[in-house]
Design a protein around this nucleic acid. Sequence first.
DNA 1: TTCTTAATTAGAATCATTCTAACTAAGTTT
DNA 2: AAACTTAGTTAGAATGATTCTAATTAAGAA
Lengths: 132, 132
Amino acid sequence: MKISEQELRTILKKYNLKITPQRLIILNYLISHKTHPTAEMIHSDLKTISLATIYNTLEKLVETGLVVVIDINDDKHHFDYYGNPHYHIINKTTNEIIDADNFNVQPLLDAASKASGLKISGYHIEVYGNKS
Amino acid sequence: MKISEQELRTILKKYNLKITPQRLIILNYLISHKTHPTAEMIHSDLKTISLATIYNTLEKLVETGLVVVIDINDDKHHFDYYGNPHYHIINKTTNEIIDADNFNVQPLLDAASKASGLKISGYHIEVYGNKS
DNA sequence: TTCTTAATTAGAATCATTCTAACTAAGTTT
DNA sequence: AAACTTAGTTAGAATGATTCTAATTAAGAA
């Protein structure tokens, strides 16, 4: 997905994040890559930005909900721009992560709200599968 | 939940896991605690069993599907005996993990199967909430 | 009982992530 | 538009959960 710098600025502003060159680059990277990268992968692609800033920025983006963390079984966090609600299908054979949105989560969120009495702020759904 | 040694043996046998005193103790611990403990918590309760064995056994149990890993935001794996299908509600204020089962996941699994063409082998659902 | 193979263990090693402390730059205020 | 305040960036060190190693022990088959 392609996005203009102006749109990137608007997104950051919306979440009260200061606009810095690093944040513009990292956010753009996340939006334009469907690869669910780790911090290390992002760093190795964006060599001019320090690893500490990659982590700091990802933390901020996750706080806002713009980005979500996916944990598969490789002991690294994977990051995913969460522009549209979706869930993840993880191919255990290849560790590939597929984004899917053909499911209405509202009934689940309602059930969770009812079961806990909490105000629901987000969710993660990961479904595991193997080559059939 | 209380369980006899004979039942523990039957469970291990069912999954082709060798029966050892350590495995009986760890599996019993997981079944009888609703606390979603980390490896370190289990180790500190079961002082006679080495940390390496705690990790090795948890790995085996997760492989079989008897136990699932829950990742909240504290950089430690939490482990949960998965006797009955359920999902997790995580109170972000307290980091408390609640087990809930008031939701039928079959439609989700069907959707995932349809979207990916994979044979579905499991799922994790975590819903986040705050005190309302 | 013997044998083979897997499980257990203590301790070392790994490595993703966080922390520290100095420097830099956003964005606000005047 | 200069000065100010506060937050962001950075390199490198520190942390700590987890994995690895290599020696010992024990499960379960023959």
